[in-house]
Design a protein around this nucleic acid. Sequence first.
DNA 1: CTGAAAGCGCTAACAA
DNA 2: TTGTTAGCGCTTTCAG
Lengths: 361, 361
Amino acid sequence: MAGSTGGDGQAAPTIYDVARAAGVAASTVSRAFARPARVNAETAGRIRRIAEEMGYRTNPLARALLNERSSMIALAISDITNPYCFEIIRGAQAAAMEVGYTMLLADGQESDRLERETLDRAARTVEGIVLASTRMSDTSIRMMAKLRPLIVLNRAVAGVPSVVTDYRHGMREAVEHLHGLGHSHITYLAGPEAAWSDGIRWQALREAGVEWGLRLHRLGPYPPTMLGGVAAADDFWRRSTSAVIAYNDLVALGLLRGLSAAGVRVPQDVSVVGCDNIFGTDLVTPGLTTLAAPLRFLGRTAVQSLLALISGAQPPVDKPVSIPTRLVVRASTDERRPARLAPPAIPVRPPISTPAGTPAT
Amino acid sequence: MAGSTGGDGQAAPTIYDVARAAGVAASTVSRAFARPARVNAETAGRIRRIAEEMGYRTNPLARALLNERSSMIALAISDITNPYCFEIIRGAQAAAMEVGYTMLLADGQESDRLERETLDRAARTVEGIVLASTRMSDTSIRMMAKLRPLIVLNRAVAGVPSVVTDYRHGMREAVEHLHGLGHSHITYLAGPEAAWSDGIRWQALREAGVEWGLRLHRLGPYPPTMLGGVAAADDFWRRSTSAVIAYNDLVALGLLRGLSAAGVRVPQDVSVVGCDNIFGTDLVTPGLTTLAAPLRFLGRTAVQSLLALISGAQPPVDKPVSIPTRLVVRASTDERRPARLAPPAIPVRPPISTPAGTPAT
DNA sequence: CTGAAAGCGCTAACAA
DNA sequence: TTGTTAGCGCTTTCAG
């Protein structure tokens, strides 16, 4: 048998088919689904039964054409493979599904152009957009926001409602933690300059530094990847402080690898702190102390805000919804050892390998 | 100003607006975009320019209503937070984007019912479906496949075209590797019984065992998560062999953790092999030896097959497209040490802690 | 090469 | 409570 490969069985029944079978008008069928209260209970029941039998499903496209209610939202992500996104996607998806919405995924593949193109195509189809991580400029975002209800995640754009992580408070906690361990100098490994979250983290860090009387250094920017972290290890080598806070966990993970390859021990020689608490941070040895962003909750909150926006709410466009962080302390941070000021005796600095093999403990 | 929060600026221009502005009929505008060859070159140019100026974008919904060509495909995933999925999603998304398709993400959250519901809703909207990891039964899948062009990933369903990983060959390689290290007994930690990939891996493993003269044991099934792996460590304790192959990397990772907590050394006491090569396998210490599935390529291939199917190709429904694996050897496998037969002297087995801050994937 | 008209499946008005 | 009608924005005939 030729295999019923294609998906084209008999045409799907339309609302008219159901109406005919039930001996009512199409609008009645429509009502039976949308506003059962406005239909004779018995009739409604019969219609629903017949529809069920015929395997009728309302065509969302047709509905949307009329209504602008496609029951779809778009989630824009600049790089799907970043573990940072996974939990956000999950949270967003769950929140959307709960209210019968479908999620359309727009991965910009780290390209501003691709991202806008995708979003442009999707914009007409969806009822709203969540920008979860984006390469787009504030201006582009504002234009997008004019087109469709839109929520930005972890970024503040004037005039556009957003949901952000409370890094200010979180960074203070992280610095307090390091201060408590006896560190007096902290190096910050910066992320992409264009990233709003890099700016806010650095700023929060500096404020916290003042508050706790610590000296801050800044290195970078580095790509927000493990490779970026490995490169950072290379630079950090020169002017190392006893504690580092990395732009995000990937960088911190790469840093751990780079330091380990260079024979620097964590936490004995250096304490390392990451950001986000992504998958993998407690897999590595030592486990990474990190400022945990409630990623799933962020995704969920963003979608819920978006849905509110869609149904006409007027969220504050200049006071982002702020979600608290939690400092997850693992083994990568420890008391400052006075001994460390003399760097480990390594005659020739070994080449720092790209993340191929394993970190040699 | 009250903040232009909602996304409702002036209504988007329709094809009629453009037609009027250009002084032609709507059908001409339509043609100017779809079949420029059939329009006077100059007119076509003018129309396109005007359309551009007005910011006209064709409404995909309206087009789809008429055509059934929504330029959307659905990717169904049973659990988005499983790192196994990330690269698949990425590959699929890239392939879709390349040809101007948008991807709709259907996360079933590990529930058969949710998955079908979501898919059911999406089915009408999309041109085709990729089932990347699914809790659905063969029967449900076949029904789905009747409704829409559909490709299954890493699963063989009679009558439905699929793209699978070549575990048969891969497992042979893994066993050969362990055999080469001097292991003579291998324990397989089974995944969910319903999972096609569990069946195929076990079967491939047994065949390879026969071929290389190794004895196989089977433990489980375990949930395909880190927690499952931790639990497996608990059982494995009893009848440990010198080598283990886990259903997937998450289980292997959990196993590493459980063994480490119990004082069993890897690879000195036990060699561990995982499956898939997900993110994190080279983060852990020791690095996990794993049978790498080309996840991104799988996603890409599945989408490409789907697109072919949509355009009327008749792929073989009973011979899945098979993608080769690659054995990634890291530190978790090593020569069998004769000494290990005497288990490490641990008076009281320490409690095996659950992974603390891990996303319970 | 271009225009007019019909209609995809649905729902919101309005009428009965 | 139910039916009738019109039309969402687009494309595809079919005439011109």
